[in-house]
């Protein structure tokens, strides 16, 4: 039995029901989100399991992971803090904001804090240009937007995650 299917049977059936029966491959992206929820990244085993459900090769699943930025194939922090510093956000101070957050956490963009709680990433436009500085947080709970931020408000949020992780 396929472990993904075993653990998320109903959810996977609901996803598959959205697409024509002979076009199961359309479900590859939603299934990758399901798999990624488990450890925060997609494992080699996941590739095989998704390939089996959709009757496509694991390498084809891997190509999707590689192409799209919201899938990860290596472990990162529990929370990925993804700061937009594209042109419109940068005109409103996003580069300085990114630098400030990184300095506070002692990491460079792309790096994970020593305690493994947070990875800071610089990302492309998130469609919130009027509310910069802003970032999204990608974690097991999904993706959430945080707009009109300051370094202080961001650090307070990170401190909250740290407390939450300590008490786990």
């Amino acid at each position: 039995m396929n472990p993904l299917r075993e653990r998320y049977g109903q959810e996977i059936d609901d996803i598959l029901a959205k697409y024509p029966q002979e076009q199961k491959r359309s479900a590859v992206m939603p299934l990758l989100y399901v798999a990624q929820r488990e450890y925060g990244y997609v494992t080699r085993e996941h590739l095989g399991q998704i390939g089996e459900i959709l009757a496509i090769a694991p390498t084809e699943v891997a190509s999707i992971v590689g192409f799209y930025t919201l899938y990860h194939d290596t472990p990162g922090g529990k929370y990925r803090l993804q700061i937009c510093n594209d042109l419109p956000c940068a005109l409103r101070g996003a580069d300085k904001f990114l630098e400030g957050v990184c300095d506070h956490l002692g990491v460079k963009p792309g790096e994970t804090s020593e305690d493994g709680v947070v990875t800071v990433e610089a990302v492309m436009c998130l469609a919130a240009c009027d509310k910069a500085p802003m970032f999204q947080v990608q974690s097991a709970e999904g993706i959430s937007y945080h707009e009109n931020q300051t370094v202080q408000s961001t650090i307070a949020l990170v401190d909250g995650w740290r407390k939450k992780e300590e008490t786990k």
């Binding site: 076009q23 491959r25 359309s26 479900a27 590859v28 992206m29 990758l32 989100y33 959709l54 496509i56 999707i64 192409f67 799209y68 930025t69 919201l70 899938y71 990302v123 492309m124 436009c125």
Partner: peptide, 19 residues
Amino acid sequence: GAGAYICGEETALLESLEG
């Protein structure tokens, strides 16, 4: 989708929707 500007182009979007 999963983070790809190109998918705003309609035929790339269709490819993406096809998995």
